[in-house]
């Protein structure tokens, strides 16, 4: 929407004004995340830019918070816990979620709306309520404070994302493909694996990424559900933020931002591949 040459001053003001406003909003969105990156290289234990940093003096910068993050057991243990919990939760959410999404997209799924509402609800119910309910209930069945307790809870929280992304890819699914496969003699399982699966794969992967990040970032449920042995990275950050504001948090945060950026790139590539496969040009 380039500005035509005959635009009136008012149109001109509107055109640039809008861009300035949007620029400011985008700045508000991104700046806080970006600003912690240089701060994480602060050579001193402060949360502000020191004069040395502003003068771009190399002495003002250091990797010491990263060294702390990557060597201190207080951070490494939670990091490994997160890396142990999130993939398992993702696996459960993706397996069950994909099957269910395929079922839900069938033309003759009974009580579709109600079931969909139930399956999406973990995303909607306030986390503190999910956490409280799970805490009491899992305690009673002996899952509270165990690895599997946290994994199952996180899997439940990740399910809606898998359902949403996979059903989205199935909406545009051309049914004649399954019919063609069936008429060529393929059984339902074979049809699913050979025809449907490659097409919904981007949705499955995207859902998996969402489920992974849900578990990887989740703090409320794990604080209630987990014991010391299941302390995850966000939990350690929460404790650190509330109790001991050590600049190592900023190093941890920067690492997490990097992970987010990588995931975002992965998703963007998936989206493009998906569009290509469906014959839509990414214009």
């Amino acid at each position: 929407m380039a500005l035509p040459r005959y635009a009136t001053p008012a149109q001109r003001a509107w055109h640039y004004g809008l861009r300035v406003i949007v620029g400011l909003v985008l700045f508000y969105l991104v700046a806080p995340i970006i600003v912690i990156i240089p701060l994480s290289f602060n050579a001193r234990d402060f949360f502000t830019f020191t004069p040395e940093m502003l003068a771009l003096d190399p002495a003002g910068y250091s990797l010491k918070h990263y060294r702390d993050f990557f060597t201190n057991i207080d951070w490494q243990l939670p990091l490994w816990n997160s890396l142990k919990i999130a993939p398992m939760a993702t696996l459960i959410a993706v397996t069950l979620g994909t099957l269910a999404a395929v079922g839900l997209s069938q033309a003759h799924m009974p009580w579709k709306r109600a079931i969909m509402a139930i399956l999406i609800s973990p995303m909607i119910v306030p986390l503190i309520i999910s956490a409280a309910g799970m805490y009491f209930f899992y305690s009673r069945i002996g899952l509270q404070g165990t690895y599997w307790g946290v994994v199952l809870a996180h899997a439940a929280l990740g399910v809606p994302f898998v359902i949403i992304t996979v059903t989205a890819t199935l909406v545009g699914f051309d049914r004649s493909l399954t019919r063609a496969a069936a008429s060529l003699g393929a059984g339902p399982v074979r049809t699913f694996l050979k025809v449907q699966m490659p097409l919904i794969m981007p949705g499955v992967v995207a859902g998996g990424l969402f489920a992974f990040i849900t578990s990887f970032d989740e703090v409320v449920v794990v604080m209630f559900m987990g014991a010391a042995g299941q302390k995850t990275l966000p939990w350690q950050m929460f404790t650190g933020l509330r109790e001991q504001i050590s600049p190592t948090i900023l190093a941890a945060a920067t690492v997490l931002v990097t992970v987010s950026i990588l995931l975002l790139i992965a998703l963007e590539l998936l989206r493009r591949r998906n569009e290509r496969l469906r014959g839509l040009s990414p214009s």
């Binding site: 305690s139 002996g142 014991a227």
Partner: peptide
């Protein structure tokens, strides 16, 4: 030895654990 840094909620944690019949 594993540490759990929640002594400021000790009584609550103990009560919950007792109710669960599973003392961590």
């Amino acid at each position: 030895v594993t540490w759990d840094e929640s002594s400021n909620e000790a009584v609550a944690k103990l009560r919950a654990a007792q109710e669960a019949g599973n003392m961590p």
